[in-house]
Every structure is written in C-alpha cells, then in structure tokens.
Design a binder for these strands. Structure first.
Lengths: 244, 244
DNA sequence: CGTTCCTTTGAAACCAATCAATAATGGTGG
DNA sequence: CCACCATTATTGATTGGTTTCAAAGGAACG
C-alpha cells in the first residue's frame, strides 16, 4: 500500500530512485472509483489526463457511424489508459469500465513536468507507449491474416499473458470478463460467430469453459493459430539516460 | 538543405530553439541510401536505431508462419520508422524500402541523450509515437468493422492525408506506389480481391486510375465508407515542458 | 524482345454475416 | 427464496462476401 500504482508498475522495469518515486507518488493523490459500465472519457472529449488502473479493467473503443464498435485496447491493473489521446486536444477513443474500477488520474501538464525533471521516467513512458503500439500491431496482424479461430485464440492469449505479468500465480486459466459481444468487437466478428468459434475450439479440446472461467488446454496450438508472440516479458532499458 | 530532416519534421509542430536544432542536427550525420526492395531491418534483429525518412517510402510488416504477411505501417518523408522496436531488444517488425530511399539513422543511445537534455523534444517524440498508435487504431477499426470497399477507401485516405502533410500541393490525386499485393497485405484481403475492389470503386466513380496515379473523385463517400478521421492536422503541444 | 512481375477475370468452394428463435444466466424486488 | 426481467449465449437456415484456383492479358525492365 505504501507505493503508488505508478511506482508498482514502473518498478517492474527499473530500480527507481527516491526522487523518481516521489515524482510518481504525486499522482496517487487523485484516485477515483468508477462503476462497471461507466464511461471514463468519450471520443472527442478534452484529452486532459491519463488514467492508471489500480483495480478493475477497462477498454478503449471507437464507435462507428453504422452503429458498430471496435474495441482497440483492454487495460488491466498496472496499465496506463488514455495515452494515445494525450497527443491530441481531444480524445481519440472512448474509455469504458468493464468492471468496477479504481483509477489514478494524471493531468497532462503533470506528465509534462515528468518529462522536464525525470528523463529516465520519460523514456520508460515512451517505451510503454511503444508496447501499446506493438500490441495493436499484433492484433492488426491477427485481424488481417488469421482465421476466425486464430483471431479468438489471439485475444485469449493476449489477455492471458497480459494478466500473468502482474498476477504470476495464474496457470492456464483466467476469468474472461468480456461478453461475447465485446470479444466480437475486439476481433472484428459478430457476437454470434464468437459463440460458434468458442464451440469449435471447445470441441477441438483447445480450451474449456466453466462459467466465466476459461481454461487453456492446448497453449501451443493456440499460439500457432494466432501466430502469437509474447511481448510482455521484457523492455530494453539499456539506452535510457541516468536517473535523477 | 540547411536543416536536417528531423528539424524539418519537428518544426511542423514547434518553434525549435537553437539548442534543440543543434541536438537534432547531430543525427543528420548518419544518412544512408537504400535501394527499392532493400530490407532495412528484419523482425528479430537487434533494435539499435531509429530511421527518419528523408526521401522515398518504406513499410513495416510482420511475416506469418503460414507464408502471409501483414503490413503494419507505411512511412513517408518526414516520418520516423522503427519506433515500436526501440522499446525492445529485438525488432518487432521488418522494415523494407518500397522505393529507393534516403534514411537518417539515429542510434538508440542518442535518443536517450535527447531524453536527458531536451525534455520538450522528448515530449514531441512521445506524441509522434502516439500518433502512430492512433494510425494503427484507425486501421484496426477499418479491418474489423468496414466492408471491403471501406477498407480500401481507408488506406487510400490514410495515404492521401498523410502525403498532404508534407506536400501541400497535392490535390485529390497521388501516385499509388504500393502493388495490389502490398495493399492486400495492408488491409487484410487477397491481391485478387483488391483488384475487384478497385474495379467496383472505379465503376461507382469514387476513384479513377491512370497508370499508378490515383484520382479521388468522391472524397466524401470514401470518408463515409471508411469511417475516416484525419489525425494528421494537429498535435496538442500545450502540456510540453519549456524548451532548453 | 523476351522474361518477369503485376493485374484482371471467371467459376467454385468456403467462411462469416444476417435474420430469427430459443435457451441459459444473472440480477432484482416482492 | 422464488418469480420475473434483462442480458447474454446458443443454434439453425439462408444469404452474401471473400478466398481459392486457374488462366490470360498488360506493364515494366533488362
């Protein structure tokens, strides 16, 4: 409880100095509770802050004029949400809580101060942004070039490996908190087809479902069909400037 | 010719100080010519530098084990290529020149020095990364939720608006330098289907092709079918720290 | 001027969307 | 605690879009 959620997150990658910890701890101050389904920011709203997930999970999406929706990113405890929007005056995506969530809110201007005073943290922020880029690229690859089952496998693996980073005790199973409509909106198929894909993968004994719990039975096959690479293992921090 | 390609690019967004210009000009030193088709870096190679495009164009892609390929990003003069890879020890994508190209090469460690000494440039680097993030999100949205013609329209518009940033005299037409196989690899359809999509859009009088020149006849319709938003107009630099 | 790469076109097979109806699940208040 | 309602998931039949396979026509290049 002593370290802020930023500190916890960043300590995964760097041995933070006291000065760096202090700089990050400032942003613990503005923590706020959100309810499941609550909209954190809407596409087009003023993009004036970042959100770090302390507990719960959320997703960023774009609504299309034809009534459909594309889910772009899913955020879990330890993630920083709203990074893409910060480059613009207005938010490029809508962020919605999937569950009750506790978020730390970091004003844009305060991020500017971090860039001013803590070059090594800035470089890490940059890397986290690039990690998000690679996640998007991987899903783009999956949507463009995988079969239906491969797309679903890719999302399952993305969530599984993502959760394992901060929750090392999960072993081949996790709570799938997305509805099948959400899953479809993430991988670009209809909710009806998601149901059929789950059915097929279950009958092939690749996965098993018990309520909302999803068991991964054949990890290797899922990896193959999704052309999956785990990106969450290591960042290269060797080029970062010295800490202050 | 007096300003480096970095300076030219960054001056679009900020009034650079002399100190900042000097810092950026260092990276002009390592300029290199690449031939069309030449591989700049390969997925898995050591990710030790960034590439700024002085002339020509290139693309980043992932090869899949089933023999297919997904094109992730297209880079034009003024763009910085290889940003996502820099967060990792090894490149997350393959970068290939589409045409003969002149690239400025910026070692990772030198980027670290920028972060150390020029906080405002670091913030701008961050924003450029987030701009790339949004470009990926937009294409993800297109792949997941648009019709075939919408996907092609989206790519056409992405290239068109991207080229207009640095080349303000182009007016509703440009040279499409990608082959139909490349286009298919970017929007997630087969080359055969790209040909048919072009045919359909031409017969609807949305576009016209003369050799490699592509004329946009009905911009509004393309925008509607691709659910397109122009992201290249403005970055919000209000939160940046003061220059040095 | 021939070879290679790129584009176009056709027919068949396949995958996913749509429309529609039913079943299961979860949450709420009586 | 159960009944009810809303949401979510499943299943079937049909339609439509895309891939695949195959072949031929065009364009670019040495």
């Amino acid at each position: 409880m002593s370290d802020s959620c930023f500190v916890t997150k960043f300590s995964h990658f760097l041995d933070l100095t006291e000065g760096e910890k202090t700089a990050l701890a400032v942003f613990e101050e503005d923590s706020k509770h959100y309810r499941a389904g609550q909209v954190v920011t809407e596409e087009g709203d003023g993009a004036d802050r970042l959100y770090t997930v302390k507990s719960g999970w959320l997703h960023a999406s774009n609504a299309l004029a034809n009534g459909t929706r594309q889910i772009l990113q899913i955020y879990y405890p330890g993630d920083v949400a709203g990074m893409p929007s910060i480059a613009f005056a207005n938010a490029s995506a809508t962020i919605v809580c999937g569950t009750d969530s506790e978020l730390c809110r970091l004003p844009k201007k305060a991020l500017g101060k971090i860039f001013e005073e803590h070059p090594r943290l800035s470089a890490l922020f940059y890397s986290l942004g690039m990690l998000e880029n690679v996640t998007l690229s991987d899903r783009l690859k999956c949507l463009g070039r995988c079969t239906g089952e491969g797309k679903l496998a890719g999302l399952i693996l993305e969530i599984y490996f993502r959760l394992r980073v901060t929750n090392s005790d999960i072993d081949r199973s996790f709570e799938m908190k997305l509805t099948q409509t959400d899953i479809g909106d993430a991988i670009g198929v209809t909710n009806v087809h998601v149901s059929r894909l789950f059915g097929k993968m279950e009958s092939r004994n690749l996965i098993r479902r018990e309520g909302r719990t999803l068991h991964i039975l054949e990890l290797e096959t899922l990896v193959d069909e999704a052309f999956f690479t785990d990106r969450f293992t290591g960042l290269d921090t060797s080029w970062y400037p010295d800490p202050r």
